[in-house]
């Protein structure tokens, strides 16, 4: 059995999402979806939403937001879905060409190894 850590939070994850554990089936979010805030945080908002909106003033990946929030990606996706449904954020996928090209990847790999 592990012990609770000092920086644990009393929040349980299900209270952040009102008990939901799955994002909607049509959720556009995956790990690398870029998220951009569409508005500023307003008082009375859930603190995670505030954090997301602040963090996403420039495009930022879902996984980065998850790390920022210190929450599992699944939970982050649900929070993002809420914000997306409210029109407070927009999402887009990163351009894929840069990542897919194996030559580029290999060159990067070689370059990294040479460092």
């Amino acid at each position: 059995m592990s012990r609770p850590g000092r920086d644990d939070s009393p929040d349980r994850l299900y209270t952040l999402t009102q008990g939901r554990a799955r994002s909607a089936p049509d959720s556009p979010f995956d790990l690398v979806t870029l998220v951009v805030a569409e508005c500023d945080p307003v008082p009375g908002m859930q603190s995670e939403h505030v954090t997301i909106l602040r963090a996403a003033q420039r495009p930022v990946a879902v996984v980065e937001l998850a790390a920022e929030l210190r929450l599992p990606v699944g939970i982050t996706k649900i929070l993002l879905s809420d914000l997306l449904a409210a029109g407070r954020v927009s999402a887009r996928h990163p351009r894929k060409a840069a990542v897919i090209d194996p030559d580029v990847l290999e060159q990067v790999l070689v370059g990294l190894r040479n460092l």
């Binding site: 059995m1 592990s2 609770p4 554990a21 799955r22 990606v73 699944g74 939970i75």
Partner: peptide, 30 residues
């Protein structure tokens, strides 16, 4: 025990990406 279990569950929730597993873990957590 409960506190330790909650910490365990939290760690598992962080570890498992599968939404079904996460849902079950959240249920147990609750």
């Amino acid at each position: 025990l409960a506190t330790g279990m909650l910490a365990d569950l939290r760690a598992m929730e962080e570890r498992h990406e599968d939404e079904d597993v996460l849902a079950d873990l959240l249920h147990l957590d609750h």
